Computed example of a mutant assay.
Amino acid sequence: MAMSAVARDTVFALRRQIAKIEGTLPERLEAPVPGAPRTISGRAIPGKVRSGLPSGIAEPTGSGVTIVRRGLAVASPDAFLHTGIERLDTALGGGLPKAALSEIHGLETRDAGTVAGFALSLASLILKQKQGLPVLWIGTAEIFREAGFPYARGLHALFGIEPEQLLFSEAPKLLDALWIAEEAARMTAFAAVILEIRGSSRLLDLTATRRLHARAQAAGRPVLLLRQAGEAEPTAAPVRLIVSAAPAASRETLAGPLAGSIGRPAFTVDIGKSRTALPGQFTLEWNPDEHAFAERTENSVAVVPVPLRGTDPAPASGAVLAFPPVASPAAISPTAGDQPSRQQRPAHRSPRRTG
C-alpha cells in the first residue's frame, strides 16, 4: 500500500509537469485523497482502476481520482495578441500568446524576407500596446549577412515602427545568440524579443526552447523565434506558424481592381502547431496605412509566376498542335534534299578510323 501511494503521487506530479510544458492547464487537477470517493465533475463513480480512458479524462488512481481535462486553459482575452482576423484567432485559441514563445517558420531561404515582414507586422501590433518600449532583434552574423537588415524607411512607412524602436544584436555564434535571447527574455524593458536563426541546429532543442518559453512566461513578454530554411523540429513553443509569400492582388481603385498593378503585401499562413491542434491556412494582407491585417478570400492574381517546390508546373493541355496534320504516311518520307551532307552528320555517327 505504501508503494501504491508513492506511485500515485509520482504519476500525479508527472501529469502536472506535462500539463505545464504543453500549456494545457487542467480545469481540475486534484491529488488523490485516501478514503475519498472517486468523482468526475461532482459525480461519484464506481469501478476499479483501468487504463484506456478517453483522452479528455485521466484514469482514476486508488480510492481518489485525478481529473485532467485536455481542453484549453481558461485565460483572459488580454493574454493573447489578437491578429484582427477572427478565423485565425479562433483557430489559435484566442490569438498568439503574449507571455510565451511563438515560432514563425520559413521553409526555404528565399522566404526570409516574408518571415521577417510577418514578424514586423506582429511587432507593429505589439508596439501599439507597449508604447515606449523597444523590440530587440537577435541573430547571428550569418543570418544578417544572408537575409540583411530591415530598411529604416520601410519600417516607418509600412509598419509604423520608428528606427529607434527596433534594436539589433548580432552574435558571432548561435550559442551566443541563445544566451542573449535568454537574458533578454527575462527583462521587462523590451516589448518583445525576436530570435532569428537559419537552418536546423542541435543547440536549439527542447531544453533551450523550454528555457526561452519559461523566461517569456515569467516576464509576461512575447518571444518570437524566426526559423529560416529549417525542418520542423520539436520545440516548446505552443504555436508554430509556417509563413510563405502569397501572390499580390491587384490594387483596388474606385473603378475596381487595376489590372496589372501590385497591391498590398500578402502572406500565406499555415498553422503547424497550436493550443487547439486545429489546422488551417489563411491568406493575410498587411494594410500599411492602418497597420492591421486583413484576410483575403477572393481569387488573387499572381504578378510573378511562382514555381512549385522543386519543379516548374506542367503547362496546361490545349488543342494547338506543334505540327500540322499530314494526309498520308508518304508525305512524311524524307527527300534527297532533306538528307544532311557528310560534313553535317554528327561526329559520333561517322566511322572511327584506327591505325
Rank of each mutant, 00 (worst) to 15 (best):
R43C: 06
A44C: 14
A44K: 14
G47T: 10
G47W: 12
V49N: 13
R50M: 14
S51P: 15
G52D: 10
G52L: 15
G52A: 15
L53D: 02
L53S: 10
P54E: 10
S55P: 12
S55D: 13
S55F: 15
G56C: 08
I57N: 05
I57Y: 06
A58I: 00
E59S: 12
E59T: 07
P60G: 12
G62T: 09
G64C: 10
G64R: 04
G64V: 00
V65Q: 01
V68R: 01
V68S: 01
V68Y: 06
R69N: 14
R69T: 03
R69I: 09
R70N: 10
R70Q: 07
R70G: 04
R70E: 09
V74I: 14
A75H: 07
S76T: 04
S76P: 01
S76A: 10
S76W: 02
P77L: 13
D78C: 11
F80W: 14
F80H: 09
G84V: 04
I85C: 03
I85Y: 02
E86Y: 14
R87I: 07
R87M: 07
L88G: 03
L88F: 13
L88A: 01
L88Y: 01
D89L: 09
T90C: 12
A91K: 00
L92N: 00
L92Q: 02
G93C: 15
G93V: 09
G93R: 07
G94A: 03
G94F: 06
G94I: 08
G95R: 03
L96I: 13
L96G: 00
P97W: 03
P97C: 06
K98V: 06
K98E: 06
